[in-house]
Design a protein around this nucleic acid. Structure first.
Lengths: 237, 237
DNA sequence: CGACGCTTTGAGGAGATTCAAGACACGTGG
DNA sequence: CCACGTGTCTTGAATCTCCTCAAAGCGTCG
């Protein structure tokens, strides 16, 4: 699954199949032309490798082209806390903009291919490409909206969080043309629980509970949504 | 306390005593000159009144000059969830940038006085004032860093959250010249609990527990930090 | 001074965690 | 190709933290 979007051909921002999702969204054709000259493409990381580390200097915004990653911070005991999962077409790196030092670490959950828009080029673009600043600001502020959703979610029960997690991944995969009803989870139960703020045993119990209700079928990392309505009602009620 | 920063004289961005905290931070003198012509000053709201509502169109960024506010969203049952408290000198409104519709509601916790930088002027500034875009982007991305801290906090015990809350308010008041050890909480136990994700009875119990340990003295809304080190150790251990 | 809202305090209960042990899956080397 | 070992996932039982419900105390403001 993760390789479906990877390619060795001459993909640029103009023909990249992520064009509806990535930085170009919000730019016109000429502006995309500007952008493609400035982006470093075809950066690769293997599973477990870091894309950047917390504490390292901010070097620019990253757009995932294939594979998935986890964005994490550390609590006072050095335990990792997974702040977000990143899917293809999603942007990464905003945790370094404010202080110019990355606040989080980004690690590949499987082989990833990404584009990199260096800091210097961001500055150049904001001067020469009027629409670019708005795209970037809009994106960074949409992170704010997303975080509000996370706060709301953090007040809900473990079952609601698990349902929300599945539905959220499903939606994001659907947007980029994957099956919304059957997919592979690239992260472990441990990582899901960490992200949702619940124990991995609880994740396991709830997934199997959903299975017993014939809402989903789950076997290891392979997930199939059987009854989306019922899953939604779990999330909404 | 809340009135110390309010004033009826001709305060502009250049002589505003919040100049280290508000939008001008990061701008040079000439840029501040540009800004002051564009800002609407001396907007007032009384306790309980809204500064803006969720669902209303985004009209620009707001800078609190005096008083405090709560920023809230609603869960599926219509209960309010307090996303943040806003103190003087802090910016408000980023929840409307991404979709141009406010995602949250902002309500005064006491009489507030604020400046308003309208959308149209933001666009003009980004074209004519090179540094402005960076300030705005930096601010919106710093919200991201703050949200990461909130995720970390949401994993911790009720006692740790309460200690963190007190220390956080203390730090923010100190920055703008108030006593860091003795101050008035402008929000109720209910609102504190809502914000921290714990029941208001739990907030009350923990505050009184801290008092029994001679870490703080608390009487109604008046709070005094007796032993900051012990409070910090509660937060860090 | 009375009423209302906010805060405190207690008792009982629910949801999720922790600890522990067993099942399963996957990759490695023989 | 199978055996083995390691890490992941599942399942159960005991425990704990925090919530909910209830009632009384306190403060504040008309």
């Amino acid at each position: 699954m993760s390789n479906a979007l990877a390619t060795k051909s001459a993909i640029t921002c103009e023909n990249c199949n992520l064009d509806k999702l990535c930085i170009p969204k919000g730019l016109n054709r000429s502006e995309i032309g500007d952008l493609k000259l400035l982006v470093n493409r075809n950066n690769i990381r293997q599973k477990g490798e870091a894309i950047y580390h917390a504490g390292s200097p901010f070097r620019g915004i990253i757009a995932l082209r294939s594979g998935s990653a986890k964005l994490l911070s550390f609590d006072r005991n050095g335990n990792e806390i997974i702040v977000d999962f990143i899917l293809p077409g999603e942007l990464l790196g905003f945790d370094g903009v404010s202080s110019q030092i990355h606040n989080c670490t980004a690690i590949a959950l499987e082989t990833v291919n990404f584009c990199h828009l260096p800091t210097r080029q961001i500055e150049a673009l904001t001067l020469n490409t009027p629409g670019f600043y708005q795209v970037l600001l809009q994106r960074s502020c949409s992170q704010f909206d997303i975080q509000v959703q996370k706060i709301l979610l953090s007040r809900r029960s473990a079952e609601e969080r698990a349902a929300s997690f599945i539905l959220h991944i499903s939606d994001r995969l659907k947007i980029r043309g994957y099956s919304e009803l059957e997919f592979r989870l690239s992260m472990s139960r441990e990582e899901i629980g960490n992200h949702l703020g619940i124990a991995h045993e609880t994740v396991s119990r709830i997934f199997n509970y959903f299975q017993s209700l014939e809402i989903i079928e789950i076997k290891a990392k392979h997930l199939k949504i059987i009854d989306k309505k019922k899953l939604l009602s779990f999330y909404k009620d």
